[in-house]
């Protein structure tokens, strides 16, 4: 396991000495910022309107306006969408570049297990995601000075984001391992993530049969995430993300095992 650490350190070094990590962090922060601003403004207006209406009717102000649910949960959902675009950018390089430069041959002929190489790279990419999430804590933090927030759903939201990111990164690493071309790796990853995401949309159209609906919604990578964002931690949901991650990494081990370059 010491080898995982060596690989991890090199990858982190590469992320932060090349522009990629900074590009991803900047993009994420800008997009999250816009969503947060828009949502918060909307919320404030709706809240003001509702309070005004209540006063006119001579009733007490509506207590159903919950900032945690209406702003933070929404923010988590949007961060998930942003991840869909950003994870392929982070993972596309990881193996494709080594395949292309031929350094994979050096790496795999060192006395290191394939899984150690994979885990090192996986954890490095996941760490960059974690850094990005850490930056986004400023929004709920700022909000908590303005209004009361529940800590529970915020924590589970971040847990969900991490699990979602780990499944995404796993898929990204797999596609990076099967090609020498970073663009191909990124495109395949994005297409796959988008497909898993859109399963949710299929469910919402209500046009498919009910058995299929059930299957689709359990396979959809986003419907399960909404539970976390709303403060519901379900063991099944967590297992879903972990098994997607595990399966993707398992496939990657097999790819490395049968390298025929």
């Amino acid at each position: 396991m010491r080898n995982v650490w060596h690989i991890y350190r090199r990858e982190i070094g590469t992320f932060f000495t090349t522009p990629m990590a900074y590009v991803v962090m900047t993009l994420f922060t800008i997009i999250a910022n816009v969503f947060f601003y828009v949502r918060t403004t909307q919320f404030v207006q709706e809240y003001a309107n509702a309070t005004l209406m209540a006063q006119m009717r001579g009733m007490p102000p509506d207590m159903n306006f919950n900032a945690t649910e209406l702003i933070v949960a929404f923010m988590f959902y949007q961060m998930g969408v942003v991840l869909l675009f950003l994870v392929p950018m982070l993972t596309m390089r990881l193996f494709a570049e080594e395949n292309q430069m031929g350094t994979i041959e050096l790496l795999l002929t060192c006395p290191v297990r394939d899984i150690e190489v994979i885990l090192g790279k996986f954890l490095a990419a996941l760490s960059v995601c974690a850094v990005v999430f850490a930056i986004s804590i400023v929004y709920p933090l700022w909000l908590s000075f303005q209004t009361a927030l529940e800590t529970g759903p915020i924590l589970t939201g971040y847990l969900g984001l991490l699990l979602l990111a780990s499944a995404f990164v796993g898929i990204g690493i797999f596609f990076s391992s099967i090609t020498e071309n970073q663009i191909v790796a990124g495109a395949l990853t994005f297409a796959t993530l988008l497909f898993l995401w859109l399963l949710a949309a299929l469910v919402q159209t209500n046009t498919v049969e009910s058995g299929l609906t059930e299957f689709l919604s359990s396979a959809s990578i986003i419907l399960r995430f909404q539970n976390f964002a709303q403060g519901v931690v379900n063991l099944g949901d967590a297992l879903y993300y972990l098994s997607v991650t595990g399966f993707a990494l398992f496939l990657t081990v097999n790819v490395l095992d049968s390298k025929v370059h």
């Binding site: 590469t14 430069m101 006395p111």
Partner: peptide, 29 residues
């Protein structure tokens, strides 16, 4: 593999690392 030092064809290296960092990385692996 523990007994072997290998230099593949065309000497693949990590272009963005310094010589010392690269060798240290390989030594650790």
């Amino acid at each position: 593999r523990r007994h072997i030092g290998y230099m593949p064809e065309n000497t693949p290296l990590y272009p963005n690392m310094t010589v010392r960092r690269y060798l240290t990385f390989m030594a650790s692996l």
